[in-house]
Lab assay of single mutants.
Amino acid sequence: MEQGTVKWFNAEKGSGFIERENGDDVFVHFSAIQGDGFKSLDEGQAVTFDVEEGQRGPQAANVQKA
């Protein structure tokens, strides 16, 4: 798993970007967020995640709040 920080997340659209510790920013969709309840992330929040190849390039998967 990688570690990173939420660069921004739009709760209305359900997507945003995570700033990786090593590498380019990666797209995140709300469906990749693990946990119960409303799936959203806050700017500056620390997260851990896997990276998968999506239709438009790398994207975060199995996102967990650190």
Rank of each mutant, 00 (worst) to 15 (best):
T48C: 12
S31D: 03
W8L: 03
I33D: 03
V26D: 01
H29L: 07
V28H: 02
A61Q: 09
K7T: 05
T48H: 08
P58K: 10
G35I: 09
A61N: 08
F17Y: 08
T5P: 00
G54D: 07
D36F: 12
I18A: 01
K13R: 11
A61F: 12
Q45N: 06
G14S: 04
L41H: 01
G54L: 07
V26H: 01
E21K: 13
V47C: 05
F9K: 02
V47H: 00
G57N: 06
F9G: 01
S31Q: 06
E53A: 10
D42E: 14
V63M: 02
F9R: 01
A46E: 09
S15F: 15
E43I: 15
Q34T: 11
D36K: 13
P58G: 05
D36H: 13
V51A: 02
Q45F: 05
L41Y: 01
Q34S: 10
E19W: 14
G35F: 09
H29N: 03
A61H: 09
D25L: 15
F38D: 08
D50S: 14
Q59Y: 15
A66D: 09
V26R: 02
Q59G: 03
V63I: 06
S31P: 00
G23N: 07
E19S: 15
L41R: 02
D42I: 15
Q45I: 08
G54R: 08
R20P: 03
E53I: 14
F38Q: 06
K7I: 06
F30E: 01
A66F: 12
V63A: 02
K13T: 12
A11M: 10
V63E: 01
E21L: 12
P58A: 08
A32K: 07
T5H: 12
A46Y: 13
V51E: 04
I18L: 08
A66V: 15
G14E: 02
H29Y: 06
N10H: 06
T5Q: 07
T48Q: 09
N10C: 13
G44K: 06
E53K: 10
E12P: 05
A60Y: 02
Q3S: 13
G37S: 06
E52V: 15
V28D: 02
A11F: 11
P58Q: 09
E53T: 11
G54S: 10
E12R: 14
A11W: 11
E21P: 12
D25W: 14
G54Q: 07
G4I: 02
K13L: 10
K39L: 10
G35R: 00
D50I: 14
P58R: 10
K65Y: 10
A11E: 07
G14Q: 03
D25G: 07
P58D: 06
V63L: 05
D42W: 14
V28M: 05
E52G: 08
T48Y: 12
R56M: 10
R56T: 08
K13D: 06
E21S: 12
W8C: 13
A46H: 14
S40D: 05
K7E: 00
E21D: 11
A61E: 04
L41I: 05
F27V: 02
V6S: 01
G14L: 04
A61M: 11
K65C: 09
V6T: 03
R56I: 07
F17K: 02
G44M: 03
A66E: 09
G16P: 02
W8M: 05
G23R: 07
R56C: 14
Q64R: 14
N62S: 05
E53D: 11
E2P: 05
D24M: 12
D50R: 14
D36P: 12
S31K: 08
A61T: 12
F49S: 01
E21Q: 12
V63S: 03
V6Y: 00
A60N: 00
A46S: 11
G57V: 07
K65H: 09
V28G: 03
E52S: 09
W8S: 06
F38M: 07
S40F: 12
Q64N: 11
K13M: 10
Q34D: 07
F27P: 03
G4Y: 00
E2H: 15
E52R: 11
S31I: 04
G16R: 00
G4D: 00
G16E: 02
K13W: 10
A61V: 14
Q59L: 08
G14T: 03
E53Q: 13
T48F: 13
G37C: 09
V26M: 05
K39D: 04
G35S: 10
E52C: 14
A11Y: 11
D24V: 13
A66G: 10
F49G: 02
W8K: 05
E2N: 12
M1S: 14
A46Q: 12
A32D: 07
M1D: 08
G37I: 07
W8H: 04
G37K: 05
A46V: 13
G54W: 05
F17L: 07
K65T: 10
F49W: 02
E12L: 14
F27R: 03
R20S: 06
Q3C: 15
L41C: 05
N62P: 00
G4M: 00
F17A: 02
E2Q: 14
E52L: 13
Q45T: 09
Q55M: 12
H29T: 04
A66K: 13
Q64G: 08
D50P: 00
R20T: 07
T5L: 10
E12V: 13
V26G: 01
K13C: 13
N10K: 05
E43R: 15
D24T: 14
A32H: 06
N22C: 13
H29C: 09
F38H: 08
G37M: 07
E52H: 11
K65W: 09
Q59H: 09
F27G: 00
W8I: 05
G16F: 06
Q3G: 08
A11P: 11
S31W: 08
A46W: 14
V28W: 05
A66I: 15
A61G: 07
S15K: 10
E2A: 10
F17S: 03
E21F: 10
Q3A: 11
K39P: 06
D24P: 15
A32L: 01
G35P: 02
A60I: 02
D24G: 13
K39Q: 08
A11S: 11
D42N: 14
K65Q: 09
F38N: 06
P58H: 07
V63D: 03
D25K: 09
Q45E: 13
V28L: 07
D36W: 11
A60G: 03
V63W: 01
A46N: 09
G37E: 06
R56G: 09
A11I: 11
A61K: 13
E21T: 12
D42S: 15
F49N: 00
K7S: 03
L41W: 04
Q3W: 15
E2G: 07
F38P: 09
L41M: 05
G16Q: 01
V26E: 00
I33A: 04
Q3M: 13
F38S: 06
Q34C: 13
K7D: 00
Q64I: 11
W8P: 01
A60W: 01
K39A: 06
E43M: 14
Q59R: 11
D50Y: 15
E52M: 13
H29K: 04
V51P: 01
D50F: 14
V6D: 00
E52P: 01
G44H: 07
D24C: 14
D36I: 12
